[in-house]
Design a protein around this nucleic acid. Structure first.
Lengths: 293, 293
DNA sequence: GGTAAGAACGTTCTAGAACGCAAG
DNA sequence: CTTGCGTTCTAGAACGTTCTTACC
């Protein structure tokens, strides 16, 4: 299938065509204008002086050395590529014809990869289209001769089992994916619930503390008695028509951490709301503060 | 050249040979006596609990995970092998038929590599001698023999694939079982948490209602003021020496549904306890009852 | 303008190949 | 000397992504 066939052997530099028979000049110009991203990204990484402790040009300026593989993988690779896998980086280097030149160091070299000669990157070619072993008669079809048929006979039955196994495997994998998603969702619910619970426990405790201290304070009780009539009037009013301003205030104060009380206590009585407002009013005016308790 | 030749067709279970043509009995006994060093070293590394942060058994105990590649390479590999190269380690794993089972983690699995089943290591075979490309009949030319060899050729690679698929299937099924168990456990947690949350919301609402009604009652406030001095004395006493009877009573009343308040509010202040006791005392003597609100 | 096909490129996992080494 | 294992470096293979191209 590959376009190389016979001529490619002599066309080292211009192998780039491969697929497009028409685009002889076009692809060439494209290559000239922009080397593959991998090469320019690698060049930039190597050439950046601020990271010379991790990766730098080699002693002869015709190679580069990765001095610190973990840092290179963790910090540099993700900044330029979509992974942090050193092996993948090396695989790309090999794809572009780089060679490891020192068995004791991660030092790679390539003819066209020279310091200060970024324009030479365009001479470096990806070497995927090797593989000159296939040629005609791909594999699956019958090579018509005796051997081919024989192989077919041998494969028969086994292929069936393979198909079966593959089906099973696919089913299992789909099930796994589904389960994992479900698990993830459930974990998330769990987390949310736990947070709600913690917030609620905290608020409950704060309320207890607050009430406890309030009850011990003669001043608080006295004021409570004084305002009792007022309070009742407020309750009466709020039973007929809600006061948005105060209700908002209440919501803000009461659901400060995550708003769950209001959200999950839709049945809270008007009387309770009024009382809480009462408490909160005292709270701000007289220094009764939940945070202080 | 393979040792199996004709007989292998019937030897499904004995695929283990593969490499050793001569050593049918010899290699078997050797394998029994001592699994390849690589396997036992790897097993020991994984099984060492002191390094679980770096490498440990997988979630299903049928795999292992390298959690920290740099540390693994720097610290563990040189202690067991003659290198510190993670890629070399992975190459060996593949040579012994391990597969990477999670694209997001360095988690490898192999049928015979199970926690607590070190003896199964002997079932793992090096698979170097696949691809019988060397020896005679290098090219795809006529295999001297006729049908028999031909079938062998046809089977080869397919059987390997079947083995691989079976392994995958087993791994997937084990993972499924594990996930299902985990899911079940998580669901249970979720249920428990939900119950706790509901109970707590209910109690919080009851308390709100109770307090609201209490606050609106002049009688309640009056009594509260009257008893304030008493209350203080109680507090003073309970700071020095707890009153078991009243404390128990408090616990019973307060954790009526599931006992979570006490359990999850260990920091509740003595003052708050005293106040609650105060309220509860009024509750029983004057008809203030949580159940009624 | 949208879009489907296809090529090149990128990422991942596994295998091939060469070499050193040690044991039988 | 042969053979199997371990280490190293490179390549194969499969699949995903991106970009171009051509056609509707």
């Amino acid at each position: 299938m590959r376009g190389d066939t016979a001529g490619s052997v002599g066309m080292e530099g211009a192998y780039s065509t491969g697929g497009g028979p028409v685009t002889n000049a076009v692809s060439a110009s494209l290559n000239v204008n922009a080397p593959p991203p991998f090469l320019s990204k690698t060049y930039d990484m190597v050439d950046d002086p601020s990271t010379d402790a991790i990766v730098s040009w080699g002693p002869g300026n015709n190679s580069f050395v990765v001095w610190n593989v973990p840092e290179f993988s963790r910090d540099l690779l993700p900044k330029h590529f979509k992974h942090n896998n050193f092996a993948s980086f090396v695989r790309q280097l090999n794809t572009y014809g780089f060679r490891k030149i020192d068995p004791d160091k991660w030092e790679f070299a390539n003819e066209g990869f020279l310091r200060g000669q970024k324009h030479l990157l365009k001479n470096i070619n990806r070497r995927k289209p090797s593989h000159a072993h296939s040629q005609q008669t791909p594999p699956p079809q019958a090579p018509s001769n005796a051997v081919g048929a024989c192989v077919e006979v041998g494969k028969f039955g086994l292929e069936e089992e393979i198909e079966r196994l593959k089906r099973d495997k696919n089913v299992l994998m789909q099930e796994l994916v589904r389960l994992r998603q479900q698990q993830q969702s459930t974990d998330h619910q769990l987390q949310t619930l736990t947070q709600r619970l913690q917030g609620m426990e905290q608020r409950q405790q704060q309320m207890m503390s607050f009430l406890a201290k309030a009850m011990q304070s003669p001043g608080f009780l006295a004021q409570l008695v004084q305002q009792n009539e007022n309070n009742r009037r407020i309750v009466e009013v709020s039973k007929k028509r809600r006061l948005p301003k105060e209700e908002n205030k209440l919501g803000e104060n009461n659901s400060s951490s995550d708003g769950q009380i209001i959200k999950y206590q839709p049945l809270m009585t008007e009387a309770a709301k009024a009382m809480l407002m009462q408490i909160l009013k005292l709270d701000s005016s007289r220094g009764w503060n939940l945070e202080q308790l």
